[in-house]
């Protein structure tokens, strides 16, 4: 189907998915697992930006912070408070891990909004790895901390006894659906916004509606700025919620 759409010479050319193609950086055609690609490039830029904000920005260690230092401190305080509020005091042990996830997602989301950039977090492969890592580590933490008591998460004591098996089935299913929804939410949001912007950009080729298209792209871009932050926030806070379930499985 998509092939036919690309084959047409005239008229509107919608290629909303082409922006997600992975290309090798230094020529060549094969994409092996070690090939440096545009995904590699943008992940490296993500790391550099994180280091720039969190290390270069704070290098002066000023008591009265400069602008970049206060951004770093704000991010730190934001995630620290979130972990403490949602997962509790003992969740603070995992704070660097959660901070890593948050900084990676929020930076990649915002870098993806630069025109011509590649959005690493719009790929389900990437977000699935993040979500599965959270899922596996949370499950392991839950069993290590609580032993078999972790299974109380699925056996709800507050419910009447006949209902408990049914609830347990529902809880188990919802527990295993977590990484799916966790990853697809982020990737889907990023992909949807970028694809919609591309569709509007294709409409801009028509002279009659191009002003409308440009306005729509601007509005979508503003919405995407919001979404880029909110999705990173949501991914992080859900990680904290899952962590809380692992640390304190009794409801």
């Amino acid at each position: 189907m998509a092939t036919e759409a690309h084959g047409e010479g005239g008229g509107l050319a919608f290629h909303p998915m082409d922006q997600f193609i992975i290309k090798p950086l230094f020529g060549g055609d094969t994409v092996s697992w070690y090939t440096p690609t545009n995904a590699t490039l943008w992940m490296a830029i993500t790391v550099l930006v994180i280091a720039g904000i969190l290390i270069v920005g704070t290098s002066r260690r000023a008591v009265v912070p400069s602008r970049s230092q206060s951004v770093a401190e704000m991010a730190y305080g934001f995630i620290h408070k979130m972990v403490e509020d949602v997962a509790g005091k003992d969740g603070l042990r995992y704070f660097p891990y959660i901070m890593t996830i948050f900084m990676f997602i929020v930076t990649a989301n915002f870098l993806g909004l630069i025109p011509m950039a590649f959005t690493s977090t719009s790929h389900i492969g990437v977000t699935a790895v993040l979500a599965i890592a959270v899922f596996v580590s949370v499950t392991v933490i839950g069993f290590v901390k609580n032993g078999a008591g972790f299974l109380n998460l699925f056996w709800i004591k507050a419910a009447p006894l006949p209902l408990r098996p049914i609830l347990a089935i529902i809880e188990v299913i919802s527990y295993f659906v977590r990484p799916v929804s966790h990853s697809i939410r982020l990737a889907g949001n990023m992909m949807a916004g970028h694809a919609v912007i591309k569709v509007f950009a294709a409409f801009a080729a028509l002279l009659a509606i191009s002003p409308f298209a440009v306005l729509a792209i601007t509005a979508m871009y503003a919405l995407e700025l919001l979404v880029a932050f909110i999705q990173a926030y949501v991914f992080t806070i859900l990680t904290c919620v899952y962590l809380k379930d692992a640390l304190h499985p009794s409801h």
């Binding site: 992975i22 697992w33 090939t35 690609t37 995904a39 993500t46 996830i101 690493s120 790929h123």
Partner: peptide, 14 residues
């Protein structure tokens, strides 16, 4: 075809 590449570089990045 692209999954392995992304996963590898993502893990490196993380």
């Amino acid at each position: 075809d692209w999954m392995g590449n992304q996963i590898f570089w993502l893990i490196v990045t993380l």
